[in-house]
Write a protein that binds this DNA or RNA. Structure first.
Length: 570
RNA sequence: CGGGGCGUAGCGCAGCCCGGUAGCGCGCCUGCUUUGGGAGCAGGAUGUCGGAGGUUCGAAUCCUCUCGCCCCGACCA
């Protein structure tokens, strides 16, 4: 491609709306332009990247035996009412009404539609398993779209759905998809990690997320370098500390602690370890009932875990704290709580504390030397409620956890029969009886992959695209093409040679000054560049430089293709 | 939805507090010069100051209402 025939529109300064590096760079490089909140146009340059990602995903899905189809983006409401998600998915859906006042939605995901296809088409176990996928625009009316295409409202997604006669078959396909996803992200040239995950709103049993690792990622991942364990911190189990609770040794003492409502300042004030303090958080369950959650002072409540123990829970408001604990906000604790009214649950670590310090349920006092069983009843329930931290033992017993951050770009689920039962996806099994199909689903955020790749691969000059998804693999940058016949001839020769060798090459023949051309190449993140100038040509040489290389190498023009091939192989 | 902030030329911003008829840098157009790291000089174009209403002789500026956007929290590929 010749730049003069293409459309390159770079910005020296990023629009103020963009905060995240990838978002800024995508705007600056002219990959995308914003139309509205969470709505982006993919410009020709950006679309080349998006298509490359899409094609790799497609090739690997095809290789894994999945079949591509394409479902409508607009879905009749009845299908979603049937599955019960019309109300449940709620405000995230873009609801549409047609001229006959019939309700539709713009699909945020396609379980219902694929189930409708399956129940009409699948009659016998002989037709199973199937794995159908599509690459299509989705719309989710996010509460807060942000970071450009990283969390857009309209985005491109690859979603696949498999149907099986039994769980063994589902498991086999699930493993196949796990391997396929690994192959896809490897081919994309991304540093990624597969982690055990919570199943979230989509539901089902087994689930793994695929994260592109980047410090700016929205998710925290707990992983163990020794054992290979990896899980979203939402899910990662915090093991109970080893050993028994120590015997009570200290006397219960009430101490004034004015202004010391936080555990850290409290521990400092009293000169005790933070881990020897207890924090009490008031939760409100789905029925509006109070539940007091006890955590060790140095631990964080994991709301996802808490939700599993206290369904539909939320943190209490100040007014609710006042309702149950009077004016003791900042000083609440388990001692003297009316257990007929307030259920008390404790994290495993908190439950093992002895002689601890907690709020006295009276401002401004804390109690020290507190012990379960002696000063207050044992908790009604002990469970894993806290978020794991770096240094915690790995739940599989194989070492110590580390925490890193990631961007979720893929998610695979074993849905089992959740949807097939609701949507009547049954087939006649080997015994001739109607059976709901086992089901799996597998998503990849195609457009998000582009942002994630940039988030992971950039420097102060711009994007550094992995070769597999770069808009062009190599750029020819002539110095003074319009002025020098020698440069023009050498650039054209190089262009022809690289194209003939099968490379995706950009000849930057724009009539711009050298500084502009070089800066643009770096901003666009094209992996390799060939600088051709009169200076070098006098010695019979051109310059070859990888985007990450500190310096250019001078090579003979005839060696260009071989040099590029060697650099790629390296 | 809760909390913060911003809407002035294509982009980045100043002007607003203290009303007086809109400016800077980049970009864009023309010409000349320049040409290996985002050029120089000269000339030029571009604004319903987000929108509506109000106060005033006069509103980008003050008041009210609205719309849009961004950032921080709970959701997701």
């Amino acid at each position: 491609m010749r730049a003069s025939q293409f459309f390159i529109s770079t910005l020296k300064e990023a629009p103020g709306e963009a905060e995240l590096v990838s978002h800024r760079l995508m705007l600056r490089a002219g990959l995308i332009r914003r139309l509205g909140s969470g709505l982006y146009t993919w410009m020709p340059l950006g679309l080349r990247v998006l298509r490359k990602v899409e094609n790799i995903v497609r090739e690997e899905m095809d290789r894994a035996g999945a079949l591509e189809l394409l479902m409508p983006a607009v879905i009749p409401a009845e299908l979603w009412q049937e599955s019960g998600r019309w109300d449940k998915f709620g405000p995230q859906m873009l609801k549409i009404r047609d001229r006959h006042e019939r309700d539709f939605l713009f699909g945020p995901t396609h379980e219902e539609v694929i189930c409708d296809v399956a129940r009409k088409e699948i009659r016998s176990y002989r037709q199973l398993p199937v794995n159908w996928y599509q690459i299509q625009s989705k719309f989710r009316d996010e509460i807060r779209p942000r970071f450009g295409v990283m969390r857009a409202r309209e985005f491109l997604m690859k979603d696949a759905y498999s149907f099986h006669e039994d769980y063994a078959s589902l498991e086999a396909t699930y493993q196949r998809m796990y391997a396929t996803y690994s192959a896809i992200f490897t081919r994309l040239g991304l540093h990624f990690r597969a982690v055990a995950a919570d199943t979230g709103a989509i539901g089902g049993s087994g689930s793994h997320e695929f994260h592109v690792l980047a410090d700016s990622g929205e998710d925290a991942i707990a992983w163990c370098p020794d054992s290979g364990y990896a899980a979203n911190v939402e899910l990662a189990e915090a093991l109970a500390p080893a050993g028994q609770r120590a015997a009570a040794g200290a006397a219960l003492t009430r101490v004034p602690t004015p202004g010391k409502t936080g555990n850290a300042e409290l521990a400092e004030f009293l000169g005790i370890a933070l881990a020897q303090t207890l924090k009490a958080l008031l939760l409100i369950d789905g029925q509006g009932r109070p539940v007091l959650a006890l955590m060790r002072g140095d631990h964080q409540l994991n709301e996802i875990k808490a939700n599993k123990v206290v369904p539909d829970m939320r943190l209490a408001s100040d007014a609710e704290i006042r309702e149950h604990f009077g004016d003791a906000k900042g000083y609440i604790g388990p001692v003297g709580v009316d257990r007929s009214r307030v259920r008390v649950i404790a994290d495993r670590s908190a439950a093992l504390l002895a002689d601890f310090c907690c709020g006295a349920n009276e401002a401004p006092f804390h109690l020290t030397g507190v012990n379960f069983g002696r000063d207050c009843p044992e908790p009604d329930l002990v469970a894993d409620l806290r978020t794991v931290e770096a240094g915690d033992p790995s739940p599989d017993g194989g070492g110590t956890l580390e925490i890193c951050r990631g961007i979720e770009v893929g998610h695979i689920f074993q849905l089992r029969t959740r949807y097939s039962e609701a949507m009547q996806v049954t087939f006649l099994d080997r015994n001739g009886s109607a059976t709901p199909a086992e089901m799996g689903c597998y998503g990849i955020g195609v457009s998000r992959v582009v942002a994630a790749a940039i988030e992971q691969n950039h420097d102060e000059r711009g994007i550094i695209f992995p070769r597999a998804i770069a808009p062009f693999e190599v750029a020819i940058v002539p110095m003074g093409l319009a002025r020098s016949e020698a440069v023009r001839a050498a650039a054209e020769t190089a262009y022809d040679a690289l194209r003939a060798a099968g490379f995706d090459v950009l000849l930057d023949d724009r009539d711009e000054r050298p500084g502009v051309l070089l800066a643009d190449q770096e901003l666009l993140g094209i992996p390799f560049r060939v600088v051709i100038g009169e200076r070098g040509l006098k010695e019979g040489l051109v310059e070859f430089q990888g985007r990450r290389d500190a310096e250019a190498r001078k090579i003979a023009p005839a060696d260009l293709v071989a040099t590029l091939k060697a650099a790629i192989a390296h």
